[in-house]
């Protein structure tokens, strides 16, 4: 009996450590949330220079060069959803005041919803996300007021639901095209496994495969500009798909995606 009590005592100590770690993590997340909006205001891209030291010439010269072609940007919150959120904001922005294109996207959304149901997803787990996605999309039919879009994407209720639905589209697309994409997986045995661990859960970061799948699923090309310490003169552009001519551009710095605007 004594040993049992001791065991329990140890368990509560472990428990305290777990709780401290959790509390610290929550505090860090709060700090990030306070400092960075989900999707930030339009700012000049060369303000990024402030983030790098004077002697960091690789980054500074790449930023200066890049800002000649991409004058403006919006930062997104680094919460693991940044690729999806950046893409969604910029994509929705290109659809504002274009009811025909919005209708085309709605048809696609309905197609993916029925594909998900074919794959065995319960409608009560999918419909809320789809409904919010479509509801917010429809608000953009007859407006070009960017404040409305900023509001939609900074309200976590609508913003996060849009992110979840894009994640579901990627999951659905990958599962239905797994013959091709399975070759890209390293640590997962099945596409279903990969999607349920790396695509569907919120806050999981995006990799190449997510980007390729999303742009193919929606047939919306995207250009990713890689800004890193690699010893080159310019930030490296990469279009998805390769031979496309995108309107949507996203800046990638190791671990994070922000929206950028081509002049």
């Amino acid at each position: 009996m004594t040993s049992e009590t001791n065991q329990e005592f140890n368990f509560y100590e472990d428990e305290l450590i777990d709780e401290k770690i959790a509390a610290q993590q929550t505090a860090i997340e709060k700090e990030i949330a306070n400092e960075q909006k989900l999707v930030g205001d339009l700012i000049e891209l060369n303000t990024l220079l402030n983030e790098y030291l004077a002697e960091d010439t690789v980054y500074r010269s790449k930023i200066t060069e890049l800002s000649e072609r991409f004058r403006y940007m919006r930062k997104t919150r680094g919460d693991g959803n940044c690729f999806f959120r950046a893409f969604a904001f910029r994509y929705f922005e290109t659809l504002m005041g274009k009811p025909d294109e919005i209708n085309k996207l709605k048809d696609l959304v309905n197609k993916f919803t029925s594909d998900l149901s074919q794959l065995g997803y319960n409608s009560f787990t999918v419909d809320d996300f789809k409904d919010v996605f479509i509801e917010e999309l429809e608000k953009l039919n007859n407006t070009s007021d960017i404040r409305l879009l900023e509001e939609i994407f900074n309200n976590s209720g609508s913003s996060d639901y849009i992110v979840v639905f894009l994640r579901l589209i990627v999951s659905c697309y990958l599962q239905n095209n797994s013959d091709f994409y399975l070759a890209f997986l390293e640590t997962y045995q099945s596409m279903k496994d990969f999607c349920s661990h790396e695509v569907e859960p919120m806050y999981r970061e995006s990799d190449h495969i997510h980007i390729i799948a999303l742009t193919n699923a929606l047939e919306i090309p995207v250009g990713i500009i890689y800004l890193d310490r690699a010893d080159q003169e310019k930030a490296t552009p990469h279009n998805f798909p390769d031979d496309s001519n995108p309107n949507i551009f996203i800046l990638y710095r190791p671990g994070h995606y922000d929206i950028i605007y081509r002049n």
């Binding site: 319960n122 009560f124 859960p201 919120m202």
Partner: peptide
């Protein structure tokens, strides 16, 4: 490989 939480769980 264990099953994890995501919004499509229930």
């Amino acid at each position: 490989s264990s099953e994890r939480w995501s919004p499509v769980q229930s």
